[in-house]
């Protein structure tokens, strides 16, 4: 089997060229000025200072706010769904979970686009409300529309890990809890919920990470004026052309996300170690 050791060499080169170098380039661009001409670069921290500018600070705060609200709603809806599903027979559970995963395979762009024809001013929902005599509402281009789109897109990422945690839980613990005199609520909070915490943490990180880095959902459902971190990055690269500033924002985003994933893993393994 030793012959096969050399098989990793192509990927070693490949991953260095297309994974490591691009990340290093982002770092390089974020601490320099001069854009694309690498000949007259100058080192500077101005790109990071620029983020403190009130306009951009607001974008960051807004992204955090929208991300947190989305994550919270996903937690409430997703936990309930995972819990409810875990109450069925095993075969039914597999089918139900399959239906939760299918939308994850369809990309965000198409699923968000699908919402437009429902939400727009003369869309399906509004014409329905109109027929009921309630009158039209402006739903598109609001925080509500953006959060709705995000929740719909990201809910499966919350449901799956929580369901996995609930499904592998030892059911006899719940019976034991009832036998020892705990009521339903006590049993839920002190046994079921506690044991599902690793799944909850996984779900929370996934949803939060995806919600602060997306640029498709705010662009389609929030309109051109609606700017979150992802849109800010897109603008720097596609229309404004300030790649250095764009790299600085991306670097912050990437570092924050990698730290969060690393922390989640830490919690995960220490939780596992306790048991």
């Amino acid at each position: 089997m030793r012959h096969f050791k050399s098989l990793i060499r192509p990927y070693l080169v490949w991953s260095f060229l297309l994974i490591i170098i691009p990340l290093l380039l982002i770092v390089l661009y974020s601490v320099t000025t001069g854009g694309n001409s690498l000949l007259n670069i100058q080192f500077t921290l101005d790109n990071f200072k620029k983020i403190a500018d009130p306009i951009y600070r607001q974008v960051f705060l807004r992204s955090l706010k929208i991300g947190l609200i989305t994550t919270l709603i996903c937690l409430l809806l997703g936990y309930t769904l995972a819990y409810v599903i875990s109450g069925f027979r095993e075969r039914t559970q597999t089918t139900l979970i399959l239906f939760v995963t299918i939308p994850m395979w369809i990309n965000t762009l198409l699923r968000t686009y699908a919402w437009i024809s429902l939400l727009s001013d003369n869309g399906v929902i509004n014409s329905f409300l109109n027929r009921l005599g309630i009158g039209r509402m402006s739903i598109m281009y609001t925080d509500f529309a953006v959060i709705l789109g995000m929740v719909c897109d990201l809910l499966p990422f919350m449901v799956i890990p929580i369901h996995t945690a609930l499904a592998k839980m030892d059911k006899s613990l719940i019976e034991a809890s009832y036998d020892l005199g705990a009521n339903r609520r006590q049993t839920f909070w002190k046994v079921t919920f506690k044991l599902s915490i690793p799944g909850v943490i996984n779900g929370l990180t996934m949803v939060f990470l995806l919600s602060i880095s997306t640029f498709v959902i705010p662009k389609l459902l929030g309109g051109g004026q609606y700017v979150l971190i992802g849109n800010l990055i897109e603008k720097q690269f596609i229309s404004v052309g300030d790649w250095n500033f764009g790299s600085a924002i991306s670097l912050i985003l990437a570092v924050a996300i990698l730290i969060m994933i690393w922390a989640t893993k830490k919690i995960d393994t220490s939780e596992g170690g306790e048991r």
Binding site: L18, I21, P22, L23, L25, I26, Y29, N36, L38, L209, L210, S213, F215, G230, I233, E234, F237, W243, G246, S247, S250, L253, A254, I257, L258, I261
Partner: peptide
């Protein structure tokens, strides 16, 4: 693990440089 957009701009910078 990286957000798509970070992977994307990394490649974009690579190709253009």
């Amino acid at each position: 693990m990286n957000p798509d957009i970070v992977t994307a701009i990394g490649l974009m910078i690579l190709f253009s440089s």
